[in-house]
Design a protein around this nucleic acid. Sequence first.
DNA 1: GCGATCAGCT
DNA 2: CACAGCTGATCGC
Length: 740
Amino acid sequence: MKKMKKTSNPSSYLCALDDDDDDFQNPICSQASFRNPISQKPLKPSNSLSLGSRNRSRKPKDRQDSIFNGPCKEKVVPLESQSQMVDDLSCQVNLGLDCVDPTISCSRVDGFSGPNKVGREESLEEMVMKTKGGVFKYNSNSIESRLLRSVGNCAPSVCGNDGESEEIGVEDECELDVLLNLCSDGDDSGNGRSVDDFSDGLIRCPLCNVDISGLSDELRQVHTNECLDKGNSLSEPVFQNEEPGIQCPGQVLNSSPIRSPRKHVDVSPVSEWLCSLGLSKYEDIFVREEIDWDSLQWLTEEDLFSIGVTALGPRKKIIHALSGLRKENNKEVDTYPAANSKTVADDSSKIAANKLITDFFPGFVAQKRNRNSTPSGKNKVEKSRPSSRNGRSAVKDNARKGKLRDIPVWCCIPETPFRVDAFKYLRRDCSHWFLTHFHLDHYQGLTKSFSHGKIYCSSVTAKLVNVKIGISWDNIQILPLNQKISIAGIDVTCFDANHCPGSIIILFEPPNGKAVLHTGDFRFDEEMTRIPALQDCHVDRLILDTTYCDPQYDFPKQEAVIQFVIEAIQAEVFNPKTLFLIGSYTIGKERLYLEVARVLRKKVYINAAKLHVLECLGIPNEDMQWFTTNEQESHIHIVPMWTLASFKRLKHISNQYKARYSLIVAFSPTGWTFGKGKKKSPGRRSQQGTIVRYEVPYSEHSSFTELQEFVKFISPANIVPSVNNHGPESSDNMISLLTS
DNA sequence: GCGATCAGCT
DNA sequence: CACAGCTGATCGC
């Protein structure tokens, strides 16, 4: 495999002292941290730390000075800032390399690996059991364990072709194929004209191929709707190629575009619906009885019995689901007046024909809007909204008209009936919803009323989805790590994304050989390059987490930052009147504070809600012991990130704890610390009175160089940035940065 | 009253 | 500028 770039070049993190007193940097610490290849040299447990055993011998004054001067003092001071530093160095704490004993193996950074580092496969059942029993090991997400388990796991990839074979006949293409290809998401996978084919700069009608570039959005819609109406008269063939969407788990997808003769009754939505209920075995019966979507609604329990669904369980399941369906249909009828039915996509019985016309230009409208919106607009899982002036009424308007928001291209997997992190765009033409991890911007739109099929995610995410949102286990399918499984006839393999607990990277391998790798949010790790499935697979489309797709974001490895935080705390931990605060998200940053606890052998305080969440992560008991919900037991508190965002809030906390603590030291772990104009240090320090805040570049997203490494490793034919993708311009920009 | 959605904010 | 949220207002049921 290729040689990884060393991001922790000591010199790159050295910088001059900040001009601003309030934003003082300690370059000494940064150097100490980055010289230390922590990933190879384990941290030393605190009980054997040499640092004056945590400064017990220091005088009170020294203590005060120490924390205000930065966390760690090194004997060797970089030349450029020595003179400025000297005044501040009032204590001789020697941290950094000197206190690291390379002979002591601290389990740490692979603390997230562990008991599950076993060289065996973990069956789906086992995973479900473990998850349900609350003992699923978080560590099983570790790269090591994952790798071990992946050995021998990955069957020869079906996508190992040269990327040129177009087995789904290009020559068989007809207008309807084109339409269906476009429906599948504007895929550029080769057969048929797709949005990417507009590279001639012209926007063409997907149906008649006439150049409609000169028309406004509205007129394009009108034009294409007219074509659609014409096309509807051929409604029968419209469904001919819809089969991929109705494949059931385990079924082998027929890659030939020429399908077996179709019945006149369209049962595909029914089949899909049955699959979503886990009752695909009754599909044949429904086909035989020619039960289409309409007649489905009228089925009674007696009918079911008479056609052969004799088992009570499935019968009840179907009846229950039908009643929900009817309710929903009534709702839809109310919400979407018949006059607008032409543009209503929310009817599974008309999957293709009634697709929103804007869906035929995936990304286009959204991109255009995004270009008009402020560049600061968060774009993750799309945040394109109409102008804020009358945004709300516009949204309402759209809802009334039955318009659905366009699904961003990075939420769709071409040639599959799958959507990824697309719960904001729920609709009934899809019943396979993948969730890469449990962060709000990825599961937004998912509520306990979800009834759109199955949610596919890791066991940790599954548990959170169940516990925190209230989704029934019936609607959740746990994806095993490093194990190729077949869903709707498409090979799917998941890998640990090294983002937050339960986060996954997903490899989709449709029968056409054009594999799609969706990273979700991820932090690249060299270990990923040793995953056989990723080594062997030719990835046609890489849907990439481009959060930090800018060379300025070249932050250090997590281990280095963890070390920095540990040292910073160590430098002051002797002082019982110091309160340490570490920021975290709902999930995320666990590795940081758990490591702090383990190395310092100090419990950290979390509130009950946080404990509840952590219990879902399958953290081993030996690690759970470091958490306490009794705040008296700890002076290291885990708090939400935004608590640390402003000194105003910190002061509020300070006041609350006036009696107990005279000093607050807060750590805000965020990659943005490395933004423009920010100092390249592992701990940007600022202070107001008795409150000290470190912004530490602890990121759970890939740095720019890591992104480059990953792209080089995957060598995809196409890249689709999933973050900060405001349209072709920004997308192309990011891609050229990555591949330069 | 409750859940969902959204704007504004950090 | 914004990781991944939170808070409060509003809306629909």
